[in-house]
Design a protein around this nucleic acid. Structure first.
Lengths: 341, 341
DNA sequence: TTGAAAGCGCTAACAG
DNA sequence: CTGTTAGCGCTTTCAA
């Protein structure tokens, strides 16, 4: 009972014309008579003809599909980016093929392989924590598949990217703490080889230096940016000779860990201890106190990458797909760092 | 400088054999000599041959791709489901093509169209709020493309589905409130035509009835399940002749709205007012007090749908792709409803 | 303005 | 065991 897919040949046969005529009519080719054009159109509608994009892809070598590789889909920031990407690309008839790396290099390499095989027109990549080299990316370049980085990029690869200015975000964040009167500000840092975390550290150092504060090496505590990492960092920090009066965490979950540990230790936030995070995870606005953090503009980032790709796909002048866009992050000031009201 | 994609013909030419021999060698066809097999394999490795899946799809009529349609990617529950789906399907060599409806029927119909054109092997669908009819689905059935519902399903469509037992979840939730001594429990309900919301209401009614409590019609307050909906429901509820002592909300955001409004009104939660939600959004465990809610097993759901599809794809006995799996939800008891400790 | 034919890369039936 | 051939559905010369 299942009607098979209708092809241009079915329509051609029905109208006693050739398949090429149908093809031309359907794409409004200039050299086709209006009468046949409308006849074909009518028949196509009647049979509810849907072109087989697989065939079109094979013929044209373009799949109208874009591959997206993220550490995890189920992370607010990444799903926001994907949401933005999808919205923009769908409007131009592109599809999304999605892979997760779970922060593993092997998965990332496999995903790239997979997406090459699927003949995607471009790959949007946010590299995994484990990724340190770029061998797996070389092949993309060789095959002429466009690559765009978002959020987490590898250095010295000449390709398009959209990131937020993590250094600025951290700078604004820490400057705000200084403005509030905090002085001994500890930084809970992420892994150094990831560009975003080293940038956040840089922003922290710059703000402190601009504020005339000497940062001891042990004020920077590197931990996994999860709740337990934050807790651990809190306890480590509280053992320092000069007790910190604030924690700037490179991630919101770590900030949450610090907050919880601080409460258990009987400290009042923000009076006894200021705490700020980074990422603007949805939960941060519901904490008590609400958490000061930095918004990374996920959806905007997705839309921007999409735009970049579409621009060079459509041959917009000047678009070579190698721009490096830096979005302005937004400091969201909330109660966890607000002394002066 | 870009190396083109290597095809079996390139390898065939290099080895002076035919393309079909290469094809057979590569898929370990039984009737092929070991010597040519290994020679082909070696050459394929050397050239880093990657089969063109587009060509394979065209030939076989199967794309090894599954379409996923959700209201929004950027919603914790849905991205969890997608995460689970991706993990299971990737392991079997399937890809995911993702569309969002933003809760609009038109977008849903367009997405289905798109995915049919892309010749996906199946579609996993969680219907939009607006969707009330099933015309757009009919075509899928006609074309023999498998359809699976997850979480939000349309009634009387004979196809596979995985949902959580929303009625049970609500029943457990409300029974727990009753056990804690709450009696006048108001239900903040969602739109009635969505199966999950009507099921939650049913569970509420059943629990109340089993608890020997008469539910007044005005104890059920239908609102959009967002923060402002919860606030509005709180104020409405508090104006009832018999003041409620608890709110069971069909969604966590609505519960958050109730919680915030209750705090502003000077009520203590859970002492003066019990509050429970539904969905186990990540923020619920960080609220003060932490929110009692129901976990919907998103990732598990994704894996289950994937399994269902893979089973009938692989022709596992008894798998016809029309099972209706109902997962057990899990009541997460937290402080917003816990009087007896 | 239209048709015939070739080919995108792969596989499978058929024939040696 | 291997080669030849045809065809998946579409587009695009080339020729009429």
């Amino acid at each position: 009972m299942k009607k098979q897919h209708v092809t241009i040949h079915d329509i051609a046969r029905e109208l006693s014309v050739s398949a090429s005529t149908v093809s031309r009519a359907l794409q409004n080719h200039p050299r086709i008579s209006e009468s046949t054009r409308s006849a074909v159109q009518k028949m196509a509608d009647r049979y509810n003809y849907q072109p087989n994009v697989v065939a079109t892809s094979l013929r044209s070598g373009k799949s109208k599909t874009v591959g997206v590789i993220v550490p995890r889909i189920n992370r607010n920031f990444f799903s926001s980016v994907i949401g933005g990407l999808e919205e923009s690309l769908a409007a131009s008839g592109y599809h999304l093929m999605i892979c997760q790396t779970h922060e593993r290099y092997d998965n990332e390499a496999a995903a790239i392989r997979t997406l090459i095989n699927a003949r995607v027109d471009a790959i949007m990549l946010s590299i995994s924590m484990e990724t340190k080299n770029k061998e797996h990316i070389q092949e993309l370049m060789d095959k002429g598949i466009r690559l765009f980085f978002f959020d987490r990029a590898l250095e010295d690869i000449e390709t398009g990217s959209v990131v937020v200015d993590d250094e600025l975000g951290a700078y604004l964040n820490v400057s705000h703490l200084l403005e509030q009167g905090y002085r001994k500000i500890v930084h809970v840092a992420g892994a150094d080889h990831i560009n975003i975390y080293s940038a956040r550290k840089k922003g922290y150092l710059k703000a402190m230096s601009d504020g005339g504060i000497d940062v001891h090496a042990d004020w920077i505590i590197q931990r996994p940016l999860i709740v337990s990492g934050g807790e651990s960092a809190f306890h480590r920090g509280m053992k320092l000779p000069a007790k910190p009066d604030a924690f700037f965490c490179a991630g919101d979950y770590a900030a949450l860990g610090v907050l919880q540990a601080a409460k258990i230790a009987g400290l009042n936030v923000p009076e006894d201890l200021g705490i700020t995070g980074f990422a603007n995870e949805p939960f941060t606005e519901f904490l008590e106190p609400t958490l000061t953090t930095v918004d990374q503009k996920g959806e905007e980032m997705g839309k921007m990458v999409a735009r970049m790709f579409l621009d060079c796909e459509e041959g917009i002048h000047g678009a070579d797909g190698c721009e490096n866009v830096v979005l302005q992050p937004e400091l969201i000031i909330r109660n966890s760092s607000l002394l002066t009201r």
